[in-house]
Design a protein around this nucleic acid. Sequence first.
DNA 1: CTGAATGCAAAGACTTTGCATCAGC
DNA 2: GCTGATGCAAAGTCTTTGCATTCAG
Lengths: 131, 131
Amino acid sequence: MNKKFKLTSARKAVLEFLEDSSFHQTAAEIHQGLVERLPSLNLSTVYRSLDYLIARQLVSVADIGRGSPVYEIVSDQPHHHLVCLNCDHVYDLDHATVEYLFNQIEADQSFEIRTNHLVLYGICESCQSEE
Amino acid sequence: MNKKFKLTSARKAVLEFLEDSSFHQTAAEIHQGLVERLPSLNLSTVYRSLDYLIARQLVSVADIGRGSPVYEIVSDQPHHHLVCLNCDHVYDLDHATVEYLFNQIEADQSFEIRTNHLVLYGICESCQSEE
DNA sequence: CTGAATGCAAAGACTTTGCATCAGC
DNA sequence: GCTGATGCAAAGTCTTTGCATTCAG
């Protein structure tokens, strides 16, 4: 964990941006959110910074089927989301519920789960009543 | 469910190809697998056929982080995969295990899960011993 | 000072679109 | 015959790469 760590301004900015984001962001969104502060920041630098941060396990990437992958801070606490297919609203899902499944799988198949951000799709309560 | 249904030769070929595939395929793989039989088949037609089949819920798409999304036949039975981050090997995951989690969520949060293909990442048994 | 990071521009990979032609009903 | 599907080529989107310059340690 204590590899040499070069935190350049670009990497720092990307990391901070993701820390301040309550939600995952695409590379373009990160870039867009930072150009104001760092006008010279290039999209390719964002990509390279993300690669760097991912390699060091500070950031994780997930493809939730939106065209571009989304990036987020790796938190100590795994967290999960329920996405409503109708209204696109995102709900939090407690890890405790999911943990049981993960433990089960690890016990059954000796497969060590590393997914720390599960996204499940469905229909939320308020949309159910509308249907 | 009984909309007018135009099963052209291209769509039929794509559907059959996916039915015969034990596993999900990218658009390029589907195309590659069919050009032998249908030399004139165009990649864009594969994409359009997939869109058509997805809209009719015969095929589902999933992005498992391989650069391109993968397509597969919608089966009555939801099924899930464990993907090893180290060797990229894919393992099947029984629905029974996952069902418990889904039921839990539906009971707790009144959220009706529609995800029928879960992909979890981690380290498989054989790679664990190597680490 | 030195190697690594960045900006810029160009190349790449994958997907979508426009249009003329062709096939199915 | 009409309507929509297909082939082809071109455009689009997102991501990666090469190279000269700049920066961090």
